[in-house]
């Protein structure tokens, strides 16, 4: 997992493993370790800071809500209680109630489910297909790369919302169908990220050394290239998930996401639109939740990614 290795401490190496010699110092780093640029760069890589942990905590909370929505002590998200209609927050409903008197907190918790499932599935699809294509393109170059990049450029140039509408119309509005549709949309972006990272890894001499050792292409891809490409790709995944949450809500806003009455954050915002003048919280509460979630995903993803970059350059 990215978090684990991203959090790697600079383990001080034992004294020089050359036996007969006395050794000095530790912190096994490149001999240029203290060159100016590294010293400066180290500053930016130091620790993750409280912001990171706050963001990660929020994401954990959202994930837990999604996972345990059915067992959490919240009301039924589909149960309209007319007396609670448009209740303000901090009344009998903690976060207020919507136009039908449904509990907002409960709907948020259940809506998290949709957001989490869709973003995870969509990003996984994009990562698997796009990532593999990108690695292959970056490794083999040549005609395959040119053809793939041309196709991807065409997909990227297509208005994504129109494409998505067509896809949803074609494969339906179930949770899986929507995840799949958004996932397909992510293939080009992932292919690009994976290809760019592969290109830089392939130039490293350890790939050449593996070939000199007689390693097969498959072995090089799996042992030398993949482990070095996967971390930046995974870190990009968090940023992508943030975008997927927004794309899903846009679909929901147009009434094309998971069908009502299943709560989704986008659907809640769409519904709140009607009550903006008298009860702005109906739209605001899901908006703020989504804002925090996307912000956290971006923040965590960004920090992890920059951490990997620092690590790469230190090596």
């Amino acid at each position: 997992m990215p978090i684990e290795s991203g959090n790697r401490r600079r383990t001080p190496a034992e004294p020089l493993p050359v036996r007969r010699k006395t050794s000095y110092g530790s912190a096994g780093r490149a001999s240029r370790a203290l060159s100016f640029s590294v010293a400066v760069r180290q500053v930016f890589g130091s620790g993750f800071g409280t912001g990171f942990w706050l963001a990660a905590g929020w994401l954990l909370l959202v994930a837990a809500c999604a996972l345990f929505a059915t067992v959490l002590p919240v009301r039924d998200p589909l149960d309209p209680v007319i007396v609670n209609r448009l209740n303000a927050p901090f009344t009998s409903n903690w976060l207020g109630a919507d136009g039908l008197g449904r509990d907002m907190l409960s709907r948020l918790v259940h809506g998290a489910r949709v957001s989490v499932v869709i973003s995870l599935t969509a990003v996984s699809i994009g990562m698997l297909i796009g990532g593999s294509l990108g690695i292959l393109a970056g490794y083999f170059r040549g005609r395959f790369e040119r053809a793939l990049m041309a196709v991807l450029d065409v997909i990227l140039a297509f208005p994504w919302l129109v494409l998505l509408l067509a896809l949803v119309a074609f494969i339906g509005q179930s949770l899986m169908a929507i995840s799949l549709a958004i996932g397909l949309l992510w293939i080009p972006a992932y292919a690009r990220v994976a290809r760019a990272n592969t290109l830089s890894v392939v130039q490293r001499e350890y790939v050449l050394a593996a070939r000199a050792m007689g390693a097969s292409t498959l072995r090089i891809l799996l042992r030398e290239v993949l482990p070095n490409v996967i971390l930046p790709v995974l870190a990009y995944g968090l940023v992508a998930m943030g975008l997927v949450v927004i794309v899903e809500s846009a679909l929901a806003f147009l009434g094309l996401s998971v069908e009502a009455p299943q709560p989704t954050w986008g659907g809640m915002i769409a519904e709140g639109k009607r009550h903006l003048a008298i009860a702005p919280h109906v739209a605001l509460v899901p908006s703020i939740t989504m804002f925090l979630t996307v912000l956290s995903l971006n923040y965590v993803g960004d920090r992890l990614r920059s951490r990997f970059e620092v690590k790469e350059s230190n090596l």
């Binding site: 020089l16 010699k21 050794s23 110092g25 912190a27 780093r29 001999s31 203290l34």
Partner: peptide
């Protein structure tokens, strides 16, 4: 020269 240059963090 045996060994290697020292690290400059917490020098001995």
């Amino acid at each position: 020269i045996p060994g290697r240059p020292p690290q400059l963090i917490d020098p001995a």
